[in-house]
Nucleic acid binder design. Structure first.
Ligand SMILES: [Mn+2]
Ligand SMILES: [Mn+2]
Ligand SMILES: [Mn+2]
Ligand SMILES: [Mn+2]
Lengths: 218, 218
DNA sequence: ATTAATATTTAGTCTTATCTAAAAATATTT
DNA sequence: AAATATTTTTAGATAAGACTAAATATTAAT
């Protein structure tokens, strides 16, 4: 049985291992968890002893198959709770993450099974992220950053890369919800910002950074 | 901000302080929490420093007004989650307690406000226990142990004193749900056991101990 | 009023999870 | 290939929460 802290570390390692290199560095973990490298080294040892990660000192860590399974269980719970909060309790998509960070650690297989049923077996969370099934299988919709589209191309918003409140509230403001249709009208050569039209209604300028954090189907 | 452990101690102290004496003993706390008296003394000091209890050594503890408020917040959460589990996730009344023990520690005022709304502002949990409102106010239905009824008297089951799985499963078996009408047909002088009729249908014998743990309105 | 029994506290240890400061290993520059 | 910079690990502390064993205080019994 993993503790809250262990689950959080494992989840972070899993997420980091998706972005590029297989071996995750001590510093990267410390950064995302807002903790110190020394603490990470300690925890890494414990996780290694529990064989949810493979670790050689000074070489970073790689998540094991067992570890991946555990991480996906936590992620599944996190995302199901996020759906619950939005669909049933009328939370907005920028409010759910902090609460889900707590709820994801509740231990009860029956609870999650029933919650999944209650929600109608959702496949994606409020930020467009796929919800792993009981076996850790993930449905992977192809998606591309809005910033990658050519001028005059369009796409449907299917996910966001950044789930911070500030970003999501901004998206709310311009009306770029999940499912919105976005057409790229123009790309400003100077700074890579885009002029886009949302749902054929509203035309706005967005920065390159924003465009990189909106994911669409092309 | 109270930790999980602190919340659990406080809740226990609150519950114990309802049953009789105002001053709760170290041993009583240790017993109900399945921990050792020495650990209780340590925690008591911390809680006293946070002034949620009043403590003089060797004299037991008394919960403070602040402490009562905090305890009632946790109890409110516990009971609301129990309602959620039964009403929405189809848990049976004997399965909810262990899960609610975890859920009661989730910190999010908005979550509880919305959960309450979502459930339609329930006043009682699946075991008939009253749910404190946001201000800690409790609706106190008058109720009496079934064992106190005279022969030929009857009452409606409104709560159970013991919420253990074993007891609740037994009640399920004989059909003594909340809301069931129970008539006392006979009291056996030998051991105080009762012959009762449930909902005018089923007649069974129950032990004195069982009768003492079923609460009815008279 | 002593003595015996029980309850409570203290002293000292352990585990988990964190930290700072210093040492060691690895990576990057010159 | 050295020198420098960065990353990672070790050493030593701290705080929360729990435990055992021993010491005190309180309560009950003689
Ligand atoms: Mn999230
Ligand atoms: Mn999400
Ligand atoms: Mn309960
Ligand atoms: Mn209950």
């Amino acid at each position: 049985m993993l503790s809250f802290a262990e689950e959080n570390y494992l989840k972070t390692i899993y997420h980091l291992s998706l972005g590029g290199e297989k071996n995750v560095s001590t510093n990267a973990i410390a950064d995302t968890l807002n903790t110190k490298p020394a603490s990470v080294t300690d925890m890494i040892r414990k996780l290694s002893k529990k064989s949810v990660i493979n670790y050689k000192r000074y070489r970073g860590v790689e998540i094991s198959e067992d570890g991946k399974k555990e991480a996906l269980k936590v992620i599944r719970k996190h995302r199901l709770w996020e759906v619950f909060l939005v669909e049933k309790l009328k939370f907005s998509w920028d409010e759910v993450h902090v609460v889900a960070e707590q709820l994801e650690h509740i231990k009860s297989p029956l609870l999650i099974k029933r919650l999944d049923e209650f929600l109608g077996f959702p496949k994606f969370d409020p930020h467009g992220d796929p919800i792993p099934d009981e076996n850790g299988e993930i449905l992977n919709k192809p998606k591309v950053a809005l910033s990658k589209l050519e001028v005059n191309e369009q796409g449907i918003v299917v996910a966001v890369k950044d789930s911070s409140s500030l970003f999501l509230q901004y998206l709310d403001k311009i009306g770029a919800y999940l499912g919105a249709k976005i057409k790229v009208n123009d790309r400003i050569a100077f700074d890579g910002s885009l002029e886009i039209t949302i749902d054929n209604k509203k035309t706005v300028f967005i920065s390159k950074e924003v465009a990189e954090n909106i994911l669409v189907t092309d």
